[in-house]
Amino acid sequence: KELVLALYDYQEKSPREVTMKKGDILTLLNSTNKDWWKVEVNGRQGFVPAAYVKKL
Rank of each mutant, 00 (worst) to 15 (best):
V39Q: 00
L5S: 05
T19W: 04
K13A: 12
D35V: 15
S14A: 09
V53Q: 00
A50S: 14
K21P: 01
S31H: 11
V18H: 03
L28H: 01
E40G: 06
L3P: 04
W36H: 03
K38R: 12
I25E: 04
S31M: 10
W36D: 01
L3G: 03
N30C: 11
N42Q: 11
G23S: 03
L3A: 07
Y10T: 01
W37I: 05
L28Q: 01
T27F: 13
S31R: 08
D35P: 03
G46S: 02
N30G: 07
D9E: 06
T27R: 14
K1W: 15
P15R: 08
L29I: 14
K1E: 11
S31Y: 09
L3C: 11
K21N: 09
E40W: 07
A51R: 14
T19P: 07
Y52N: 05
M20P: 00
R16C: 13
D35A: 14
E17Y: 06
Y8G: 06
K55V: 13
R44C: 06
K54G: 09
K22G: 05
A51L: 12
G46P: 00
K1A: 13
L29W: 07
E40M: 09
E40P: 00
A51Y: 10
E17I: 04
K1V: 14
I25D: 01
Q11F: 14
V18F: 13
K21L: 09
K21F: 13
A50E: 03
V41P: 00
L28K: 01
K22V: 08
K55D: 04
V53Y: 01
E12Q: 14
K38H: 13
W37S: 03
D9W: 04
D35T: 15
K54D: 07
R16I: 13
A50P: 04
N42M: 11
T32I: 10
V48N: 00
P15C: 08
P49Q: 02
I25G: 01
L28T: 01
L26A: 09
K13F: 06
D24N: 07
K22I: 07
E17P: 05
Q11M: 14
D24H: 05
N42T: 07
T32K: 12
A6T: 03
P15T: 11
T32P: 04
E17T: 09
S14F: 07
K38I: 15
Y52P: 00
Q11D: 13
L7R: 05
L56Y: 10
L28W: 02
Y52M: 11
D24Y: 05
L7C: 07
K13P: 05
K34M: 12
K54F: 12
R16Y: 15
E17W: 04
R16F: 15
V39P: 00
V39I: 08
W36S: 03
K54R: 15
K1L: 15
N42A: 13
L29E: 03
Y8K: 13
R44K: 12
F47Q: 04
E2R: 12
P49F: 02
L3D: 04
V48G: 00
L3W: 14
T27S: 09
R44F: 07
K13T: 14
A6Y: 01
R44V: 09
M20D: 00
A6F: 01
V4F: 08
F47W: 15
K34N: 12
Y52F: 14
E12C: 12
V41W: 09
Q45K: 11
E2C: 13
K13W: 05
R44P: 01
Q45W: 08
F47A: 03
L26Q: 01
V18I: 14
K38P: 02
K54Y: 12
Q11C: 10
T27P: 15
V18G: 02
L29S: 03
N33T: 07
L56C: 10
K22Y: 05
N33M: 09
K1Y: 14
V53F: 05
K54I: 15
P15N: 12
L26E: 00
V39C: 05
P15S: 14
W37A: 05
I25P: 02
L28A: 02
L56Q: 06
K22H: 06
Q45C: 10
V39N: 00
V48S: 00
D35F: 15
L29C: 07
Q45E: 13
R44Q: 08
I25Y: 06
A50G: 04
V39T: 01
V18K: 02
Q11P: 08
W36F: 07
D35S: 14
V48P: 00
V53H: 00
V39W: 00
E17F: 07
Y10D: 00
A6E: 00
S14I: 05
K1R: 14
T27K: 10
V41C: 10
D9T: 07
A50H: 03
N33S: 11
S31K: 08
L28P: 01
W36Q: 03
A50M: 05
T32Y: 10
L28E: 01
P15M: 10
Y8V: 11
K21T: 09
K55M: 15
V39K: 00
Y52S: 10
K34C: 11
E2L: 13
G46K: 02
L5W: 08
K22C: 07
L26S: 02
A6P: 01
G46R: 02
G46W: 03
T27H: 11
A50R: 09
T32Q: 12
G43R: 05
W37N: 02
T19M: 05
W37F: 08
S14N: 13
K55G: 06
N30F: 08
G43M: 06
G43P: 04
K55P: 11
K21C: 10
Y8F: 13
E12D: 05
G43F: 06
N33L: 10
K22S: 08
R44Y: 06
T19Q: 05
K21H: 11
E2T: 13
L7F: 04
W37E: 01
K38D: 04
R16H: 13
T32R: 12
G46D: 01
S14G: 13
N30E: 15
Q45I: 15
V41Q: 12
D35H: 15
W36N: 02
E17S: 07
V41A: 13
L5H: 05
V39M: 02
G46F: 07
K34G: 11
N30R: 07
